[in-house]
Amino acid sequence: MQSKSIEQPLEESGYPEKRSRIASFLKELRKNIHYYVLMAPYLIIFLLFTVIPVVISFGLSFTYFNMLEFPRFIGWSNYSRLFLSDDIFSIALKNTFMFAIITGPISYIACFIFAWIINELSPKVRAFMTLVFYAPSISGNVFFIWLIIFSGDSYGYLNGILMNIGFILEPIQWLKDEQYILAVVIIVQLWLSLGAGFLAFIAGLQTIDRSLIEAGAIDGIKNRWQELWFITLPSMRPMLMFGAVMQITQSFAVAEISIALAGFPSVNYAAHTVVTHLMDYGTIRFEMGYASAIATILFTIMVGTNMVVQRLLRKVGA
């Protein structure tokens, strides 16, 4: 911005308008070349594996493509097939929204509440509790430990306890009974969900200016709830936005946990999600055009929800 205003006097010196604009643009590019060089390695990889794939995926969603023949343009028929004749997709969509509507808000609020309480602790205890809550999300897919807990025979930990206290007489097939599968996957998903957003909240709470809180007390803030709404939340709005992005994206992407716990495909598609549907068509049936249409829908859902929630969060405490 600064460089432009400095160069403006030069532009007036005789050159035709258009040419000078291009010239000054090139000049600026040349001046900033080092920045482009620094960014190049990252950007090339980012372009190749994130930006271009999204574009390809969008393009392929209008074609029939089986990896062998050249993609054939078929217009909207992938989408109409998805919404009108694919019964399993509607189950997947319903399950995905169930997961997202339950785990998204709960994990987001849990991240905040736990961060808020942890922030009250003395530094050593705080560090320990942060570790306890954050550990599941980085412990390298050990969520299969829940397989043992929810195992369907009487050696399963939950069944064992319940049978021991006489609550049930026979072991329950937690992961095979449609009634329970969704709930089990949701519990494990919640267990895993205190990730980067949670850390951001704790860090954000620690940086809140103490003097703001003291000023608030003078201005007549009476209790902790008022303090939370009028001071704490508005001052950490950027972290709230960041945390929301993390939790929303995560809550729509349930797949690995569902596969690890309920199998692929799960009994009667009880834990089938948009992502597992995408895997089904993309890596097993090789209907790439159709799978791309699923991916495009997933992209739209995730980004759309994020945009809406960002807009809502701007209103917090305002």
């Binding site: 594996f49 994130t50 794939p53 999204v54 995926s57 992005v245 929303i248 994206t249 995560q250 729509f252 992407a253 797949a255 992502v275 995408l278 895997m279 993309g282 991916a295 495009t296 997933l298 992209f299 995730m302 980004v303 994020n306 945009m307």
Partner: peptide, 8 residues
Amino acid sequence: MFSPHVTA
């Protein structure tokens, strides 16, 4: 705002 599954 979207997960890597989209680009798989």
